[in-house]
Design a protein around this nucleic acid. Structure first.
Length: 257
DNA sequence: ATGGCAATGTTTCATTGA
C-alpha cells in the first residue's frame, strides 16, 4: 500500500501534473495541501476519471486539504478540521482507509518568528498534538502526513547557519514537531538510510531547486504498527522539475500488507 | 538537466507563501 502527500500550491493550476503523477505512481491514498479551491470548485470529475474518489475541505485563495482514495478502497469516518476547535482555515481532514486512520495536515507557515502568524502556528500545533494523542488512543494504525512547515533537524536544512532561528527552523517549532513524535509517531523518512541533503521544498526564487537549496518540511509520521510495516519512505524530487511545478515535491511511503 | 518567483484576487499592484 502506498501513501503519499503533496502540497500542490493550487490544485487548479497543478491538476494536469497531479493526474500524470497519479498514473505514474499509482498511490492508494494521496493527501493534498494548498488546494486553494472552494468545495464547489473541486475537480471531482477529473479526479474520478484518474481513478480516485476525493474528500476535501477547501476555501478560496488559501489553504485547502483533500484526501484522494484509489477506486476499490473505501474511505469512512471523514472528519474535516479538529473536533471541538472551529477554525476558518481549512487545514485538516481525516479519514479511515483500509484500517488506517489518515490525518492530512497543512500546518500554518508562521511567516516570521514572533509574528501573530507564528504565535498562531505554535498554538495550532499544540492543539494538534492533543488531537493526535486522542486519535492514537482509538486508532493504533495512524498515519499523519502533509506539509508540517517545520524542518525538524539541521540535516533537513541546506544551510543550517543561514536558517538558524528563522521560521520553519526555530526551536519552538522544532519542539512542537517533537511533541507530535512524543504522541507516539515515527518520522517515516528517518526509518531508513537516506541521501544527504534530502529536501521536500525549494523556493521558486534564486535557482533554489537546481542548487538544491531546500528544506525538508513535508512529512509522513507513522504509529508503531505502521512503522513496522513500512518498507520505504522517499521524496519524489523529479516532480519538482519541468514547467510549472509546485514548490513542494510529493513524499511517499510503502507499507507491506 | 533542473532554471533565475508563483498563485490569487481585482489588477495593473498587494498579499501570501516558506
Amino acid at each position: 500500500m502506498i501513501l503519499a502527500a503533496w502540497n500542490v500550491n493550487s490544485l487548479n493550476i497543478r491538476l494536469p501534473r497531479l493526474v500524470e503523477w497519479l498514473a505514474a505512481n499509482k498511490p492508494d491514498v494521496v493527501c493534498l495541501q494548498e488546494t486553494k479551491l472552494e468545495d464547489h470548485k473541486f475537480p471531482v470529475v477529473d479526479i474520478a476519471a484518474a481513478g480516485y474518489a476525493a474528500h476535501f475541505a477547501g476555501q478560496k485563495t488559501y489553504n485547502g486539504v483533500a484526501i484522494l482514495v484509489r477506486e476499490g478502497l473505501a474511505a469512512t469516518d471523514v472528519v474535516a478540521g479538529v473536533p471541538g476547535r472551529p477554525d476558518e482555515q481549512k487545514r485538516v481532514i481525516a479519514a479511515t482507509i483500509a484500517g488506517i486512520r489518515v490525518i492530512n495536515l497543512y500546518v500554518p507557515n508562521g511567516q516570521a518568528v514572533d509574528s501573530d502568524k507564528y504565535r498562531y502556528k505554535l498554538d495550532w500545533c499544540g492543539a494538534i498534538a492533543g488531537y493526535l494523542r486522542d486519535v492514537l488512543s482509538r486508532h493504533p494504525n495512524l498515519a499523519v502526513m502533509g506539509d508540517f512547515n517545520v524542518a525538524p533537524e539541521d540535516r533537513d536544512v541546506h544551510d543550517p547557519a543561514l536558517w538558524a532561528g528563522q521560521v520553519l527552523c526555530s526551536e519552538p517549532e522544532r519542539a512542537a514537531f517533537r511533541l507530535f513524535l512524543a504522541a507516539g509517531l515515527k518520522d517515516s523518512f528517518r526509518l531508513f538510510e537516506q541521501p544527504p541533503k534530502s529536501f521536500s521544498w525549494w523556493d521558486y526564487r534564486q535557482l533554489a531547486f537546481p542548487k538544491n537549496h531546500g528544506l525538508r518540511i513535508d512529512h509522513i509520521l507513522l504509529s508503531p504498527p505502521l512503522a513496522a510495516r513500512c518498507m520505504s519512505s522517499r521524496i519524489d524530487r523529479n516532480a519538482r522539475k519541468g514547467l510549472k511545478p509546485s514548490d513542494h515535491a510529493p513524499i511517499l511511503v510503502e507499507l507491506r500488507d
